[in-house]
């Protein structure tokens, strides 16, 4: 039932509020873009204006390490190796999401469908670990990764999340619990192995929830900051969020190249915006459902 309100005063006020919300949501995106297309020497004169200053696309090429029309006298070659950070972010996200999806589903399936001694104890242990604040884990995990010699490797960066996160297990278990079991039984009678049943039958039914989970996990991994910040500091593994904060941290000694920074920010947001354009409905619906477990 969709009942449209007539355009009364409260409704008009409501539309105004909605427009305000959207405006505030989008304003910072515009500020990043307009600063990115402004000549560096113009950035501060026009910082308090909604319009960009003298236009240029040189900031983007400069950040990408390409020959650029905008060279700074302070010879800062390529402050962030953008392409490399982008690649690193993609690898980091792909690894953590793929690993979590697979291993967490496997465990979730076992928790939901198979009987084995200690099952509930284990599951509640998993569940309880959602309450451990990440900061408690960072220091010992950092030391562990260090002892394993995995500092500055992707292996070290993805290790804590690639095998499971409590959320992923919990999320998938809910769906396996409510799925019909008849197909499983039939396959079992035909002599399919447990893994075959999981892989060929149980998992495909959950394509929807899997996609939802994948989107949720991707957003988190893409934006993850603290752990990669601790473990993945080498340029070869430094993800985008860490690279951007490195750029920023020069402020205490030196004013950063804001137009360059905003150009880098804009470029880092682009993949996400593109994703929103292509999968807008799916993302919205996935996020919507994450609270309805």
């Amino acid at each position: 039932m969709v009942r449209k309100l007539r355009l009364t005063v409260p409704a008009a006020f409501g539309y105004l509020m909605l427009a305000g919300f959207v405006g505030v949501s989008l304003l910072p995106f515009w500020v990043a873009i307009k600063t990115a297309i402004t000549q560096p020497g113009d950035v501060f004169q026009t910082a308090s204006s909604i319009a960009p200053g003298e236009l240029t696309f040189g900031n983007f090429t400069r950040v990408l390490g390409l020959p650029s029309s905008v060279e700074l006298t302070s010879v800062r070659a390529s402050p962030i190796n953008f392409a490399l950070s982008l690649r690193n972010s993609l690898i980091y996200t792909a690894l953590t999401v793929a690993g979590q999806l697979f291993f967490s589903s496997l465990a979730a399936y076992a928790f939901a469908r198979l009987k084995f001694p200690g099952r509930n104890l284990m599951f509640y242990g998993f569940l309880a670990s959602t309450m451990i604040p990440a900061i408690v884990l960072f220091i010992p995990n950092f030391i562990l990764i260090k002892d394993l010699g995995l500092i500055n490797t992707f292996a070290g960066m993805v290790a804590p999340t690639v095998l499971m996160t409590p959320f992923a297990v919990f999320f998938m278990r809910q769906f396996f619990l409510s799925a019909p079991r008849e197909l499983d039984e039939a396959a079992k009678l035909e002599g399919a192995s447990a893994f075959q049943i999981f892989w060929r039958i149980a998992l495909p039914i959950q394509a929807g929830p899997m996609a939802t989970l994948a989107i949720l996990l991707s957003i988190n991994s893409w934006n993850e900051f603290f752990w990669p910040f601790l473990v993945g500091r080498g340029e070869d593994v430094r993800v985008m969020a860490v690279a951007l904060s490195d750029f920023m941290s020069q402020t205490s000694q030196r004013t950063p190249d804001w137009s360059g920074l905003m150009a880098a920010l804009t470029l880092s947001i682009l993949p996400v915006i593109a994703l929103l354009f292509v999968f807008g409905r799916q993302i919205v619906e996935s996020l919507q459902s994450s609270g309805m477990k």
Partner: peptide, 21 residues
């Protein structure tokens, strides 16, 4: 040559000493 911003430089260096990196 590797360059890092001031704040992060020191965190990275200390953790580098600890972890032999």
């Amino acid at each position: 040559i590797t360059q890092d911003g001031w704040d992060n430089y020191w965190t990275k260096l200390t953790t580098g000493f600890t972890s032999a990196t």
